[in-house]
């Protein structure tokens, strides 16, 4: 069965005005998984941890220490956001590797004849999802910047008249950089995961047994790395933007 490479997510149905795409459905499932996990932890919390709690503790603790290294006194504020980015992206990337993704679906009569509509599709192979995360990441970064620097200090970062207007130019460049951030964050994640999907589909079409296994391992690593990259970049942007101008030694 040949899979067509589709950039757009397939719409499964409508919930009011909201088109429920297959990626959005998987996003909800991923959220449900994470929430159930959190509930499980919350109501089974012990001072002397079991194996499962221990694993979760290690993940959370490592994340916290990583954030603390860079954010110092702002850790309490940054950590939940950064960690949620990491967990959400990681779980959705890995969840997308499960069997059934892109294979279980139904045929729909479209404009160009019959098309296959998979029920499940890895979240981040849809630019809507990654762009949503990237926009949110940059937006939160700027909100924190305003919170820590004040509106005046925040604006000064972009429109400074020091050094005879040289910094005005620099500020403008940086302003462009902010838009680049959105594009790089969203397209990096989307590109990696989408490419992974395509590679897996292609390899599976060549020979479905054993041969795709190394690629699955590769995708596991890619899924983790992309989640970590998104997390670290968001963290670095937050730290840099909410830093006072003279603070950088």
């Amino acid at each position: 069965m040949e899979h067509e490479i589709v950039l757009k997510p397939e719409v499964l149905g409508y919930l009011g005005v909201l088109p429920v795409t297959n990626t959005l459905l998987v996003a909800w499932i991923t959220m449900a998984i994470l929430i159930i996990l959190a509930l499980f932890i919350k109501f089974r919390m012990k001072t002397i941890p079991g194996k499962f709690q221990n694993l979760i503790e290690i993940v959370i603790d490592t994340g916290y220490k990583t954030v603390e290294e860079m954010a110092h006194n702002k850790t309490k504020l940054f950590f939940p956001i950064v960690m949620t980015f990491f967990l959400y992206i990681l779980i959705s990337n890995w969840f997308g590797l499960f069997p059934g993704f892109a294979t279980i679906g139904f045929y729909e009569q479209g404009e160009h004849g019959q098309t296959f509509v998979p029920l499940l599709r890895s979240i981040n192979s849809d630019l809507n999802m990654t762009l949503g995360l990237a926009l949110l990441s940059v937006a939160i970064t700027h909100i924190f910047a305003i919170k820590f620097l004040g509106l005046k200090g925040y604006l000064k970062k972009w429109f400074s008249l020091e050094m005879f207007g040289v910094f005005l130019f620099v500020g403008l460049l940086e302003l462009v950089g902010e838009f680049t951030k959105i594009v790089s964050l969203s397209f990096r994640l989307f590109g990696n995961i989408f490419a992974g999907e395509v590679v897996l589909a292609t390899i599976s079409n060549i020979f479905a047994f054993i041969v795709p296994l190394p690629f699955y391992f590769l995708e596991l690593i890619v899924g983790f790395v992309q989640a970590a990259v998104f997390m670290m970049l968001t963290l670095v942007f937050m730290v840099l933007l909410s830093e006072k101008h003279g603070d950088e030694h």
Binding site: P9, L34, F85, Y88, D126, M129, G132, L133, L136
Partner: peptide, 17 residues
Amino acid sequence: ILLLAQVVNFLVLLFIL
């Protein structure tokens, strides 16, 4: 609307987690 949906997803997840 899909972007918004994802933003809402994330915020809900953030709050609960």
